[in-house]
């Protein structure tokens, strides 16, 4: 029953608040209702009215009507403040299944300032974390933590934004679909890097790398040229400090990764181990080729190369039509 209602509501929401990456809050999108505190406030007004009537005390009645009109005005003040908000999803970094990752979000306003604290959470997700950010400047950046369990293509759910400004009497909220389709890569699983020579060249001369050459070294500040994979997201989420993980220099080598690079019998484990190998090689800045289903990529290096490979893994068993995936937005 509950599910049915949620489904209906979701359908209704789709119609009422269509998906869009960059959204301004219009009256269609905003819901407003007295908060719990607002309800108590109204009960208090009722009490004052009864007290004023019983003691035949006009000042108390006047206070009661004053509080009521203040309540009424706050309905508008709350709504107008919230309606000035703009929200935009920023490109997110690589996301791996079963690992906490984040969706960077930008809150902004033009013209008159939005005030108060905006509370964000994922809609219809039972144990979503509420992120609260005070709006203090025209642009506010934050990251929404999310946990996606399965690899593959994912459409992100709706984001609930809530604001209690100015007196907490009303809560304004909205459920926005920021139109984010993201590819979730398989969870990396530690294993040896197993680069295979291309079958055309020589008969399977296997080049093996020992695990451990890409040991974590230290954290340093983010520079524009850095790969987003190396950003320590935990730091960003916690302290809003952009830090990059650095690793010790690996040895150069070249070869191909194929499904045979992992010797696990389980397919998902295979994919996970391949993911790990791709990441390891990428971090080490080592060129590698990729042969997977119908995909054949000659050895190369770089973020783009890595992403094509990982996307292919993520989408397995469906085949990518071309290298045009949408994760480097």
């Amino acid at each position: 029953m509950r599910q049915l209602i949620t489904k209906r509501f979701a359908k209704w929401l789709r119609k009422r608040i269509p998906a869009e990456n960059n959204q301004t809050l219009s009256h269609q999108k905003i819901f407003i209702f007295p908060s719990k505190f607002g309800a108590w406030y109204l009960i208090l007004c009722g009490l004052l009215f009864v007290l004023g009537t019983n003691y035949q005390n006009n000042i108390m009645r006047l206070l009661c009507t004053f509080l009521l009109s203040l309540f009424l005005l706050h309905l508008f003040a709350s709504y107008i403040n919230f309606s000035r908000l703009r929200i935009k999803a920023l490109p997110c970094s690589d996301i791996y299944a079963s690992q906490t990752s984040v969706l960077p979000v930008e809150l902004s306003y033009k013209g008159k300032a939005v005030e108060g604290v905006i509370h964000l959470s994922w809609w219809n997700e039972p144990d979503t974390k509420v992120i609260s950010v005070p709006i203090e400047s025209p642009y506010t950046h934050l990251v929404m933590p999310m946990l996606l369990l399965q690899r593959g293509k994912h459409r992100l759910g709706r984001l609930t934004l809530r604001c209690d400004y100015p007196l907490g009497l009303f809560k304004c909220w909205t459920h926005l679909d920021l139109d984010q389709t993201i590819t979730v890569f398989p969870t990396p699983k530690t294993c040896h890097v197993n680069l295979l020579a291309h079958q055309g060249e020589s008969n399977s001369s296997t080049l093996t790398f020992r695990e451990g050459f890409e040991e974590f070294h230290s954290l340093r500040n983010f520079q524009n040229t850095d790969s987003l994979t190396r950003v320590a997201w935990k730091h960003v989420a916690k302290n809003n400090e952009w830090r990059v993980k650095t690793f010790e220099e690996p040895m150069p080598s070249s070869g191909f990764l194929t499904l045979e690079s992992s010797d696990s019998p389980d397919l998902e484990v295979k994919l996970s181990e391949l993911t790990h190998q791709i990441l390891t090689l990428n971090k080490a800045n080592k060129p590698f080729g990729f042969k997977f289903q119908e995909l054949f990529i000659p050895p190369s290096i770089g973020e783009k190369h890595k992403n094509i490979c990982l996307t292919a893994l993520a989408h397995y068993p469906s085949v990518l039509d071309s290298e045009g995936t949408n994760d480097e937005r």
Binding site: N58, T65, F66, L68, S69, L72, L73
Partner: peptide, 11 residues
């Protein structure tokens, strides 16, 4: 101040 006239009217 905006609430006052409404309050007076309601009163």
């Amino acid at each position: 101040l905006q609430a006052l006239p409404i309050a007076a009217l309601l009163f």
